[in-house]
Amino acid sequence: MLDVRTVGLAPRFVPYQEGWALQRELHAEIVAGDRDDTLLLMEHEPVYTAGARTARHERPVDGTPVVDVDRGGKITWHGPGQLVGYPLLRLPEPIDVVAHVRRLEAVLIGVLREWGVDGYRVEGRSGVWVRRPLSEDKIAAIGVRVQRGVTMHGFALNCDNSLLPFRSIVPCGISDAGVTTISEVVGADVSPADVHDAVAEAFRSAATTPDAEVAA
């Protein structure tokens, strides 16, 4: 059973540190066997977060604060207009982190399909991508951590957020591709609140088929 908990959507934007503290609290409860698997959904206040592999040259050069976090991946931005999800899931043995990431991608690809967006994977790069007229752009970023068999961190799905903050960094350490949003792709405003229910239901459905690959 998956417990889906919505922490904050516009006009309530969750400070990153608050969301991270909640993750750690619930993660400990799942590890202890006191809580079911949980998906946290929220919009954050604007923030840059950097995984352990983030290089100096990939950080903002304008003095913008960066929160260093204990997930995989490199630097990215979170903020209003972006639906961020933290699936706190107990993984089956043997632990396969790559399979977990592929599963997150598959769920998000399915959600995007409901909005007429043809998302896909790019070999060697995590996240979900779309083909644009002049580029290949990331529409959803993924960065995870597994501790004591339970996952932390997760995904950021760009809905109707500004893309300007990404110009101050090398998003996810990838300099030869762009970033886009659902709204930009479909040519209409699609907010995190609009996609929230579809994301929640897709993860609930995936949780009922733990031994099967989610169709992408």
Rank of each mutant, 00 (worst) to 15 (best):
D68M: 04
T181Q: 07
M42N: 09
L9V: 12
L40V: 12
V128I: 14
T76F: 05
A198Q: 15
V150D: 03
I30V: 10
R148C: 14
V14M: 04
V195G: 11
V150S: 09
I142W: 02
A141Y: 01
G127Q: 03
S205Y: 10
G8R: 05
V146F: 06
C159I: 01
G73C: 00
P80L: 13
V47I: 04
T38S: 11
H196I: 09
D37Q: 13
G63V: 00
I139Q: 00
M152C: 05
P165D: 00
W129I: 07
P133L: 09
L164Y: 05
V111P: 05
H100C: 06
R113A: 15
P94K: 03
T209D: 08
E93M: 10
E25P: 10
E18S: 11
D34I: 05
I169M: 07
A32V: 09
G33H: 07
A32M: 09
V7I: 11
W115N: 08
D62I: 02
G143I: 00
S175Y: 02
E43W: 05
E114V: 05
G127F: 04
L89A: 08
I174V: 01
D160H: 02
G73D: 00
G154D: 01
L108H: 01
A215F: 12
G178Y: 04
D194T: 15
A216V: 07
P65D: 03
V14N: 01
P80M: 12
E25K: 13
G110I: 05
P133K: 10
A99V: 11
P80G: 12
L39V: 11
Y86K: 14
V117P: 09
D62P: 03
V97I: 15
D62T: 02
S135H: 12
